[in-house]
Computed example of a mutant assay.
Amino acid sequence: MRSSFFARLVNDPFGDPALYVRVAHRREALLFDCGDLHPLAARDLLKIQAVFLSHAHIDHLCGFDQLLRTFLYREQPLLIYGPPGIGARIGHRLAAYTWNLIRGYPLSIEVREWAAGGQGLALHFRAAEGFQPQTPRPFACPAGLLHDTPHYQVRAQALEHGDILSLAFALEEKTHVAIHPDALEKFGYSPGPWLSRFKDLLRAGAPGTTPVDVPRDAGGRVRRPLAALAGDIAHCEAGMKIAYVTDASPSRENAAKITALAENAHLLAIEAVFAERDRHLAVERNHLTAGLAGRLARQAGAKKLLVFHHSPRYQGEAMLLREEAQAAYAGAISPLA
């Protein structure tokens, strides 16, 4: 399978949490947590369609101001998702500045709050109105579904992080449409933007008789029914999945939720704050150990493991945490009693 999502940590594993995910062929990206964003160029920031905040600790939210400053002239709205209360917190951040010179600016921000019962709140802020909050309205998030597009969706799972909630997220491609280059060559079809529309039609379940105009290498176009064209040049399979987990207490309840959320993920990006030798600190400070992160990835059947959010006490020992996580992921470390 060719990757549909390209994920990378914005900072090194000791830096602020922020996972940048570029969506292939879409000129768009998603951001999971919003720590220090200075390593991202403005062109990368401007591709962000939605931000998913696990919670509002400063290391997960301090990059918001940079994002806001970059987006002020953007016409496309910015979506922000997070736990209950995140709308008011974003509102306070916006209210901290003087906005008397932005009345003509197009930016609008919508903050959508997850809720356990599937009925959260959405708050809207417009630059043209000085980012004064509008009346909150209901936001439906059934079964944790936060963000739904024709191409992918994002679900949330609430984890305990001491006495607050921290959201974990799963980004899933709805259907992966694989194009066969040799078939394109065989039929003399010219690759190009039409393939994106073709894939969109398949994902949307369009009727098989839907006509698709296909450019030819030799010039001109040929019109083919969607189903026949799909049979000639493509096949569909389960889509790509990325799970993101951070700031979670090392409890059995959280472990069960994480493995369910990350089941069969192509990538699990998960915090590994402490080494197993310091498990007492992990319990005390409500974070995961590297060994537990690796075991959860193994239990979930994740195909790849990415650990981050290391405690600064291990500066110079990053390899220790990576190796401990990988050993547990490979099954070399037995589960804790």
Score class of each variant (00 low, 15 high):
111 V>W: 06
139 F>T: 06
125 F>P: 00
116 A>H: 13
104 G>K: 07
119 Q>I: 14
116 A>T: 07
91 G>A: 09
129 E>H: 13
92 H>Q: 15
87 G>A: 15
138 P>T: 13
132 Q>C: 07
126 R>N: 07
73 Y>T: 11
83 P>Y: 04
133 P>E: 04
99 W>R: 02
139 F>E: 06
91 G>D: 06
116 A>G: 04
120 G>E: 02
140 A>F: 05
102 I>Y: 12
114 W>I: 02
76 Q>Y: 01
111 V>D: 05
110 E>F: 04
116 A>C: 04
129 E>A: 15
147 H>V: 01
136 P>D: 11
98 T>R: 13
99 W>Y: 11
88 A>R: 14
103 R>V: 02
76 Q>V: 10
70 T>G: 03
103 R>H: 12
102 I>R: 08
81 Y>M: 00
117 G>R: 11
81 Y>Q: 06
94 L>D: 05
142 P>R: 04
105 Y>S: 13
108 S>R: 14
96 A>I: 00
147 H>E: 03
139 F>R: 02
110 E>T: 15
124 H>D: 01
78 L>C: 07
77 P>V: 04
117 G>C: 08
113 E>Y: 06
145 L>M: 08
134 Q>L: 13
107 L>M: 12
135 T>D: 10
121 L>A: 13
140 A>C: 07
136 P>A: 12
141 C>D: 03
121 L>E: 10
137 R>C: 09
71 F>D: 01
139 F>P: 05
74 R>V: 15
89 R>M: 09
129 E>F: 00
95 A>C: 02
122 A>T: 05
137 R>L: 08
143 A>I: 04
86 I>D: 03
84 P>K: 12
97 Y>Q: 14
85 G>P: 07
105 Y>G: 00
135 T>P: 06
108 S>E: 15
84 P>Q: 12
107 L>W: 08
127 A>T: 10
74 R>A: 15
74 R>I: 11
77 P>W: 01
90 I>N: 00
132 Q>Y: 05
105 Y>E: 10
97 Y>C: 03
129 E>I: 01
90 I>M: 05
114 W>H: 14
